[in-house]
Write a protein that binds this DNA or RNA. Structure first.
Lengths: 210, 210
DNA sequence: TTTATATTTAACTGGATGGTTAAACTTAAT
DNA sequence: ATTAAGTTTAACCATCCAGTTAAATATAAA
């Protein structure tokens, strides 16, 4: 990376960290500068304003997040393989960036002009509807390979199942996981299997549908 | 309600709204006062400081959230009935307070001293591990009524499945639900059935386990 | 009516923040 | 070596914010 973009990128990474930790209004430009090991004036040299920096961070992290999900979902595989690999790969991504999803959900949930224009720009720039996987699921339903259901309900359910451990972890640790939670990595690994098995086969053995 | 507590409660409700919308650092005391229809000095008369008000809001909303979940989970029912009623009731609660969970997850994810001490106080004050439902599930597993799995994995999966639509809605609306999402209430109702059926029976018909 | 408490007003304050500036310094390219 | 661009420093500034204050007013209770 050339020097010009190195500093720009360094600032962006530092800003992302601080915004993730402190939120948009809690983050301080001086702190971002300290984190990046530069002086504050340089933040403005490169990004002009706090809002601009924030918008760039939102755009970057959102783009990456959606891209991650789409990449995993849009594969030429059977539904079973898509679900299995999605759960496995997405949880791996979440394990490596546990704080990013909550940051994104939080900022988008909060709304505001900056977020809105980032979202609008994103939508204008490319189609982010996961059409392929929706079709794949629907075709599998038509062929009787999976039960009739709205593919979107299925995907939302899987997303939520994968995400929740990571976005709710501090709370889970004082409630559900307060006792006997000794190996986080193992629990996450088990999570991959557990989610897939529940989604695929449910929890009632050989159960009939009602 | 007596007058003394009416103002105190009014301030608290207004503060909760504003904190939910703007976050801790984005919320302004003047705005909270405006929302409550009082003058700003009265905020300090009743709650002494912004931090104190925030801590009270966190404690209140967290307490309610955990209480909601625990109340639904800790019933004397079969596993099937617990899951069915949990999904139904929890989604109803979420429908009526769509912004609260994300607020809580966000603030806890952000951490900080205030949140930590609220969490500590909460933990000291009472046991918030949902023991009963964990036992119920484990006993059903032992009896072969449901497949062997870690009860905590199951509960986390169900929580995530119920929550995600609500916390991720703005993002889902430009991605997965961009097209054909015309009746939100209907979608939410369908969600109850979809989640239950997926959890209970999975998506592969009469599927064998792997 | 008096007393006590709750509420308001309007102005103020100290500190923090995002942003700016000019000059100096450093680094990279020619 | 010179020039151009990137970076730093240190100070500054206007604005905003949480919090304060004294006095006045309103409301509730006795």
């Amino acid at each position: 990376m050339d020097k010009l973009h190195a500093t720009e990128e360094l600032i962006l990474q530092s800003a992302m960290q601080v915004f993730i930790e402190k939120g948009r209004h809690g983050a301080r430009m001086q702190e971002i500068a300290d984190r990046a090991g530069i002086n504050k004036a340089l933040l403005h040299y490169y990004y002009r304003s706090k809002d601009n920096l924030y918008a760039t961070v939102i755009e970057k992290s959102l783009g990456k997040n959606i891209s991650d999900v789409m990449k995993i979902l849009d594969k030429n595989l059977s539904v079973e393989e898509i679900i299995r690999s999605f759960i496995r790969d997405y949880i791996e991504i979440l394990r490596n960036n546990p704080k990013l999803p909550l940051f994104i959900l939080r900022e988008i949930g909060e709304g505001g002009e900056i977020v809105s224009s980032v979202l609008n720009r994103l939508v204008q720039r490319k189609d982010i509807v996961p059409r392929k996987v929706l079709d794949t699921i629907q075709r599998a339903i038509d062929r009787g390979e999976i039960v009739p259901l709205d593919p979107r309900q299925l995907i939302i359910t899987i997303l939520g199942a994968c995400l929740f451990f990571f976005i709710g972890e501090p709370l889970l640790k004082i409630t559900l996981l307060k006792e006997g939670f000794t190996d986080r990595d193992r629990f996450i690994e088990e999570r991959k299997e557990a989610i897939f098995n529940i989604i695929a086969y449910g929890i009632f053995p050989g159960g009939d549908r009602t």
